[in-house]
């Protein structure tokens, strides 16, 4: 591997690893389930995406690069769907929002629906 390939590959790898660590830290530190989903869905997607692209570039094989890019695309397609379904399922089973939350239009709407 030449230096000109090694540098971007290592930058991508370190950046991807950093985002994954920060996503994990976010899951630990954020106050409730919903805010944790933010860390998992965004920083997690970018982290794994960067590592995949680094692996694809580092292999120096177009077939592997295409597969790595396809993996990234599938991450982008599936991460928001799973985050949405988990958040919805949590809210429907009454997982409370953190105390510091300022509003909840979704709960208000469900109450209105129940009164109808």
């Amino acid at each position: 591997m030449t230096l000109w390939l090694a540098i971007p590959v290592s930058i991508l790898l370190v950046a991807g690893g950093l985002f994954s660590v920060l996503a994990a830290l976010g899951i630990l530190r954020l106050p409730d389930f919903y805010t944790r989903m933010h860390a998992a869905s965004k920083a997690g997607t970018i982290g794994s995406g960067l590592v995949l692209i680094a692996a694809g570039l580092g292999s120096q094989d177009p077939a592997i690069l295409i597969r790595a890019l396809a993996g990234f695309v599938f991450f982008i397609l599936t991460a928001p769907v799973s985050a949405h379904l988990l958040a919805r399922a949590a809210h429907l089973s009454r997982v409370p929002l953190a105390k510091i939350s300022v509003r909840d239009d979704y709960a208000r709407k469900q109450n209105e629906d129940r009164l109808k």
């Binding site: 996503a23 830290l25 939350s101 300022v102």
Partner: peptide
């Protein structure tokens, strides 16, 4: 991703979460 990353490394997280319509 960058914003979330910056948010979680701050010692005091400034959050006003909520669900809006």
């Amino acid at each position: 991703a960058f914003k979330v990353a910056v948010l979680v490394v701050r010692p005091k997280m400034d959050l006003k979460p909520g669900i809006l319509e």
